[in-house]
Write a protein that binds this DNA or RNA. Structure first.
Length: 264
DNA sequence: AATGTGCACAACCGCAATTTG
DNA sequence: GCAAATTGCGGTTGTGCACAT
């Protein structure tokens, strides 16, 4: 019994990649493109598992990869994003150009995680907790302490945006160009520069079009999604009105007229 | 110089989601 | 609709290096 292995282990190289293997993989992908990882090793003449090839390419050989020297700014951003997203390394990496999920995960596990927990010098525990909390707290009652996903207790979906497991729900939504704040701001403080108001013109999901007013780069909210018709508005607590079902979203990438959200 | 210890990082593993036939 | 294949992700392990003893 047992699970079928992803590829036969016999006759395959394991461990560190050699320069020659790297050359073979890079030249093959340059010629044929990425994908078909399962059959790539055979076609490229590599004695490696397809998953291993994919990992090697994505983490080390792909053009534009930055290695090492994580700057203070990047460090700060990782901490903030970890506070928002938990251990969803691929999402965090997506906001750090040139960085890979594996590198960020390693960096967190060996360095940043300890720093945040106050186990090593440098940044104080208080400093990092405050940093993360300042981003997350909007969707959490003030009585509840900030929490990272490295904590064992599973977060309540009602109170915390932090999940331990990534969900693949990323959607790219066409939106109107940024414009002045709408009157339907639900009392959001005007100086809340990081916050966003999302106006949901109509549902359902196959043609979701939202008006967006933001000069921020991040949005996190968790909300019950209520109602069926009419405009939907994200209020100060991140509450959406205009559909039904529980939802959580993080604005990933404002890019021109498109805004990329992850829906959880 | 030899050995022990801790750290950082590359790579592997298993699971889940997604795609394909 | 279902099963198999593929892809993506996060957790964990193995290894090499630097430093201490």
């Amino acid at each position: 019994m047992g699970r079928k292995p992803c590829c036969p282990k016999e006759g395959l190289n394991r461990g560190a990649w050699t320069a020659m293997e790297d050359d073979i993989l890079v030249s093959y992908i340059r010629k044929h493109g990425e994908g078909k990882w399962g059959s790539l090793p055979k076609r490229a003449g590599l004695k490696r598992c397809g998953k291993s090839c994919r990992l090697r390419w994505l983490n080390y050989l792909r053009p534009g990869i930055k290695r090492g020297n994580i700057s203070d700014d990047e460090e700060e951003l990782i901490i903030r994003l970890h506070g928002l997203l938990g251990n969803r390394w691929s999402l965090i990496a997506g906001r750090l150009p040139g960085r890979t999920d594996n590198e960020i995960k390693n960096y967190w596990n060996t360095t940043l995680g300890k720093k945040v927990r106050g186990e090593v010098g440098g940044h104080s525990r208080q400093h990092h907790q405050a940093t993360a909390a300042s981003t997350v707290v909007r969707s959490r009652p003030s009585s509840e302490p900030a929490r990272t996903s490295s904590d064992a207790a599973p977060p309540s979906p009602d109170t915390s945006p932090v999940r331990t497991k990534a969900l693949r729900c990323t959607a790219r939504l066409p939106v109107a160009p940024p414009r002045a704040a709408s009157p339907a701001s639900h009392g959001r403080p005007p100086d809340d520069a990081e916050a966003a108001e999302v106006r949901q013109d109509h549902l359902p999901e196959d043609d979701m079009s939202i008006d967006l007013d933001f000069d921020m780069c991040e949005l996190s909210f968790l909300s019950p999604w209520r109602g069926q018709d009419g405009d939907g508005v994200v209020g100060p607590s991140g509450q959406f009105v205009g559909g039904e079902g529980d939802m959580e979203a993080l604005l990933l990438e404002p890019a021109g007229d498109d805004v990329e959200f992850a829906w959880f």
